[in-house]
């Protein structure tokens, strides 16, 4: 059997629009994950033993289990508990929860490298904790952790391909549909791989550009 270049080339016009689905899902999930990650980071500082303990267990659970199983828990499990979600909703929520755990860990790492001076000054001046977070810590922190956040976004994009398993019609699922009519799975899959590769490469290049701009502004 030979590689069918025509089938390979014909896959792209259908895969490219499908990539928009991956990108949209990824951006929505990333936004939710940023909010979730920030909330978790702040909650961890409350010092309420039960709360920090529960967050610790959640972090360990999410980090220690496959995202595919988490997606199944949301997609199959939540309806059984009376919460009906569309495949896309379930997928977005699962990815967002997973990612917010990784983001709160990134934020923790970012905090450890920050200069404590401004925070101590703010405390000495009697500034409220909430203001310290929103005005002093978080703005610095987001800029600081930009590179790992961009990296996290590419991880999320990779996660969106898993949603093909729960019938979300994104790039991989589209490739499978193409293969079902052309009987050329390898050609369609390689095209899908290239589309996803290009998407992630674009994201990391964009991230690198933003990063150098910030670096230039600071310098």
């Amino acid at each position: 059997m030979d590689f069918d270049l025509a089938a390979f080339g014909d896959a792209f016009p259908r895969l490219l629009p499908a990539a928009l689905t991956n990108l949209t899902i990824a951006l929505v999930a990333m936004t939710l994950a940023l909010i979730g990650g920030t909330v978790l980071t702040v909650l961890r500082t409350t010092g309420i033993g039960l709360l920090t303990g529960a967050i610790g267990v959640l972090i360990s659970f999410i980090r220690g289990t496959p995202i595919l199983v988490q997606i199944f828990l949301f997609y199959y499990g939540l309806p059984a508990l009376g919460l009906d979600l569309t495949p896309i909703q379930a997928g977005v929520l699962a990815i967002a929860l997973n990612s917010s755990i990784f983001i709160t860990e990134i934020m923790r790492g970012g905090l450890s490298g920050m200069d404590p001076g401004p925070v101590e000054a703010a405390i000495a001046l009697g500034v409220r904790a909430r203001t310290i977070w929103t005005r002093v810590i978080l703005p610095q922190l987001y800029i600081r952790i930009l590179p790992p956040l961009v990296n996290e976004l590419t991880t999320i994009v990779k996660g969106t391909a898993l949603l093909s398993v729960i019938t979300v019609v994104e790039v991989l699922r589209t490739a499978q549909q193409i293969a079902n009519t052309t009987f050329r799975p390898l050609e369609a899959l390689l095209a899908a791989a290239i589309v996803l590769f290009a998407l992630n490469l674009a994201i990391s290049q964009l991230g690198r550009r933003i990063e150098t701009r910030f670096a230039a502004r600071r310098g």
């Binding site: 905090l111 405390i123 904790a129 310290i132 977070w133």
Partner: peptide, 9 residues
């Protein structure tokens, strides 16, 4: 940092 936030709140 986390301790600081805790004390203030």
């Amino acid at each position: 940092y986390l301790q600081l936030g805790m004390r203030r709140s």
